[in-house]
């Protein structure tokens, strides 16, 4: 459906913007390494079904490989910046101070409690949706601490937030057309979108209506 396609395209766009940001500036200014590492973990734990070879569609499989591949590629690019631009890298690390154990621990516990089946694959899947819902927090934390962000960085976060937000009308659509109701995806998706709400508001005010991006 149109919402699902738009969401996935928005997700793709966010990654293209992120790669463009790193490529263009040749540094990692304003990008949280911790958030990016969390995304590698999110995609690797969610797409374990690739190993079972029970593929739903070519589209699905290609996208899964794309998300795993690009998330790892981002880490590689960031590590290159460490060598090329050590001062900027150190500066980023000094500001990337969110304690991710507070995201990993609860996600693991929530996955044990809320899952569709107590199997490795399902537990990892549940862990990945819980973790994804909060994975942006180190990035938002970094942004709010510095108070400023490059335009590309804000576009990246916006596109990334829009992706999960668009999944919500997709779930409503699927509920009516397929009678499908995946409660874990829906709950974590709502949580994820809620975490972006503040950011969306500031983005709308500053970026859409003109002017620079500054957080209080």
């Amino acid at each position: 459906n149109i919402f699902r396609i738009s969401a996935d395209l928005s997700h793709l766009a966010s990654i293209v913007i992120l790669l463009e940001t790193i490529r263009k500036t040749r540094q990692v200014d304003g990008i949280s390494l911790k958030t990016q590492l969390l995304y590698v973990l999110v995609f690797c734990t969610r797409y374990l079904d690739l190993l079972t070879f029970r593929w739903t569609s070519l589209y699905n499989t290609l996208m899964k490989f794309f998300f795993i591949g690009t998330s790892i590629y981002v880490i590689k690019l960031m590590q290159e910046c460490k060598i090329k631009n050590p001062v900027a890298y150190k500066d980023m690390m000094a500001r990337d101070t969110f304690q991710i154990k507070y995201l990993l621990g609860p996600s693991a516990i929530l996955a044990m409690v809320f899952n569709y089946k107590f199997t490795i694959l399902e537990l990892c899947w549940s862990f990945s949706v819980w973790l994804e819902s909060v994975a942006i927090l180190p990035q938002l934390f970094m942004l709010s601490r510095s108070g400023k962000a490059g335009t590309l960085t804000t576009h990246y976060i916006f596109a990334l937030g829009l992706y999960r937000a668009l999944y919500i009308p997709n779930w409503i659509w699927r509920y009516y057309t397929e009678n499908r109701f995946e409660k874990l995806s829906i709950f974590t998706g709502l949580l994820q979108t809620a975490l972006y709400s503040d950011f969306f508001y500031i983005y709308y005010k500053k970026v859409i209506k003109g002017g620079g991006f500054e957080l209080p």
Partner: peptide, 10 residues
């Protein structure tokens, strides 16, 4: 549905 959901979303 009562069967295990297929995770066909990304």
């Amino acid at each position: 549905s009562t069967t295990l959901l297929e995770h066909d979303e990304l």
